[in-house]
Design a protein around this nucleic acid. Structure first.
Lengths: 184, 184
DNA sequence: GTCTATACACCGATAGAC
DNA sequence: GTCTATCGGTGTATAGAC
């Protein structure tokens, strides 16, 4: 088994339990490897595993969630496609976002840079679509931030209220939220 | 020292570190009490402390954050006042929301009910203001949810990007977000 | 009420056999 | 590479003196 086979199995644990809750016992169970074997792949231990998971998800963000934004689809359609993929990725709003989990507690200091990078890439991808659709530059950035912000807020509220309809509602309005009044 | 004096000192630890990160060592240090003394006040241990903290913050939500909504101020002014208090309570967006922290990981199962109650009260308070301002009932609820949702999202994004301006921007638009097109 | 001392489980991490 | 065994430290929780 290679390192690239192990990482995807670690993802679920960090996403469900956060950094502190992702114990080696759970990581071991999820991978089917003994603790010592995990240290073979990740000499930096748990911190190394979290870093790898963040890198893996950041790559997934680009290759899967943001891919439709760079396609030749019309802007609105590409946003709809992103929304569909987000819906799947976050399991209809039931799965937490690792970027949110890792910006609290002790993890905050360890992963600020990686979290910041991922969020910025996400926002930049959205800015590009808005600009392409003819939205004014100053407005495009604010709206792009709003898109990510509302997704994150919807995840919190959907989990807290146990009401998936909130997440759906936010996903549905993403296109008009970013492009309102332009090229719809 | 009474139980009511201890609880406020526990709050900061849970808000900063979340449930799993709020260790008895930290709670002991924050209160100035030994671990055993904490068990005198909270026989249910850490879970009891978290429950007490949630209750305390829920009461604060009603008595401080939501109080202006029930005052005789005009709707828009009461929302501005709530926004000011939220700004202070969340330290300009640098402090996490306990309701968000406790709806992930192992804490999720333990505190769903209390978290749900607090979020619903918050939303109900906002719905009441919107109705008072003449917003249609179906729309009022969605907008109230949006207010809480955007606050939560702004907290995530402000922490993750280390950019307090995002939190400020959301707070500033709360009145129009809830009342748009009505009695402004 | 607050303390010291302690019980026991689990934490992250490592050594060394195979 | 994967394992068993184990380290030192810390986790939550309790007992019992004062």
């Amino acid at each position: 088994m290679s390192k690239d086979d192990v990482i995807p199995k670690l993802v679920g644990v960090f996403r469900q339990y956060g950094y502190e809750g992702a114990t080696l016992s759970r990581l071991s169970k999820a991978t089917g490897l003994g603790r010592a074997s995990l240290y073979h792949y990740f000499p930096q231990g748990k911190e190394g595993m979290a870093t790898a998971v963040l890198g893996y998800l950041n790559q997934g963000l680009n290759e899967h969630l943001l891919a439709p934004l760079q396609s030749d689809l019309p802007p609105e359609a590409s946003l709809c496609e992103m929304a569909r993929r987000i819906d799947r990725f976050y399991a209809q709003g039931n799965q937490a976002c690792l970027l949110a989990l890792l910006s609290t507690g002790e993890a905050q200091n360890l992963f600020v840079r990686q979290v910041q990078t991922a969020l910025k890439q996400w926002i930049e991808g959205l800015v590009a679509v808005a600009l392409e659709a003819g939205v004014a530059p100053e407005i495009a950035r604010e709206r792009a931030e709003d898109v990510v912000l509302q997704i994150q807020g919807a995840l919190v509220l959907t989990r807290g209220l146990n009401d998936p309809s909130i997440f759906q509602r936010v996903l549905n309005r993403l296109p008009e939220l970013l492009l309102e009044g332009k090229a719809c």
